[in-house]
């Protein structure tokens, strides 16, 4: 297994470089212009000068290696400098956003807390609800619990957040006035009261997002459990006099985890991708909002960096999922 992991990690490097290249070329080919958001009153020559100041005058074969160098050499050097007071970066240009002219990584770091609080929390909540719901729904197939679970999760999944989010705001912020409709990203939790405030502003976006996660994962959990509950080994285990608890939670669950692990592992990187629509609706302004604003503004360095970080996480978590397959089902071999 260890050699497998090392081999996969080594393969990841060229794979990621290729992914970076494809994303770069995609952004390069896509129509769009960072000057699109400028007022029409700015004359064309001035816009052209602004484009050149952003480095857009250079062809892609200059800009792509430059980005690679900035990402893999300058940025790490800069972090080492700021941590240990060295001078490795030597004043080289970091990756700079077109929109704010500030280092891309500073903005990403600024956005992490709210994304982790809201999107991360919703994922944890969603998974924590989905697993038991899926297990019970399968074990008691076609019971009231199962029917209700199916109904809620399918409705929940098919109602898009641009509707459910606004509906929650209209109910809880406008009509009842209980919860704030606009997330305060500058809020920091220092004591009990501020923690309660944080909970109040988190509850609606977390609900909207968790509903989607729960719906999805509980369906896969239920389906996998159903497949396994009918298997011969379950009958054998019961015949041997094992308790239902051990049969279901140990044997059946363990064998049903493979699709669920896949889905969960695919979902974790998307936490860091943020939740574009939900963040917009509740003004959470996390990584999802950062990405969509950068996309709309054709802020290529920002989009490139965010998407590439996302790709790194995808590759990493898919590797983790592959390793976990082997843990849950030792028969799986990769060589």
């Amino acid at each position: 297994m260890l050699t497998y992991i090392i081999r996969r990690l080594l393969i990841s490097i060229p794979a990621l470089l290729l992914i970076a290249f494809v994303i770069f070329m995609l952004l390069e080919l896509a129509p769009g212009d960072p000057m699109a958001s400028m007022p029409l009153t700015i004359p064309a020559e001035v816009k052209q000068q602004m484009r050149e100041a952003l480095g857009l005058g250079e062809p892609w074969w200059v800009r792509f290696p430059l980005w690679l160098k900035q990402f893999f050499i300058v940025e790490p050097a800069y972090w080492i400098d700021s941590a240990f007071g060295t001078d490795l970066a030597g004043g080289q240009q970091r990756i700079i956003s077109f929109q704010s002219r500030s280092p891309v990584f500073d903005t990403i770091a600024e956005r992490m807390p709210q994304t982790l609080w809201v999107v991360g929390m919703s994922y944890v909540v969603g998974v924590a609800i989905a697993l038991p719901v899926g297990i019970i729904s399968a074990y008691r197939q076609y019971s009231v619990f199962d029917q209700a679970g199916t109904f809620v999760s399918m409705i929940g999944f098919s109602v898009p957040p641009f509707f459910s989010g606004v509906l929650l705001i209209v109910i809880f912020s406008v009509s009842l006035g209980w919860l704030p409709s606009i997330y305060d990203t500058t809020h920091s939790v220092t004591d009990w009261d501020s923690f309660v405030f944080q909970l109040r502003q988190m509850v609606m976006p977390v609900m909207v997002l968790a509903l989607q996660t729960t719906a999805q994962i509980s369906r896969y959990m239920r389906a996998a459990m159903l497949d396994n509950l009918g298997q011969d080994y379950v009958r054998t285990a019961r015949a041997k006099g094992m308790s239902e608890r051990i049969v279901v939670l140990k044997h059946v669950l363990r064998n049903s985890m493979i699709p669920v692990i896949t889905v969960i592992a695919l979902g974790i990187p998307s936490i860091f991708g943020g939740a574009i629509i939900t963040e917009q609706i509740f003004k959470v302004n996390g990584l999802g909002q950062l990405l969509i604003i950068a996309l709309q503004g054709n802020d290529i360095p920002m989009v490139m960096t965010l998407t590439f970080l996302f790709a790194v996480l995808i590759v990493m978590f898919n590797l983790i999922a592959d390793v976990l397959y082997g843990v849950f089902d030792p028969r799986i071999r990769y060589d």
Binding site: P31, G32, Q296, N298
Partner: peptide, 12 residues
């Protein structure tokens, strides 16, 4: 989309 419409990308 506005970012394309008002953008000056000669390729679009």
């Amino acid at each position: 989309d506005s970012s394309v419409f008002f953008g000056g990308d000669p390729g679009s």
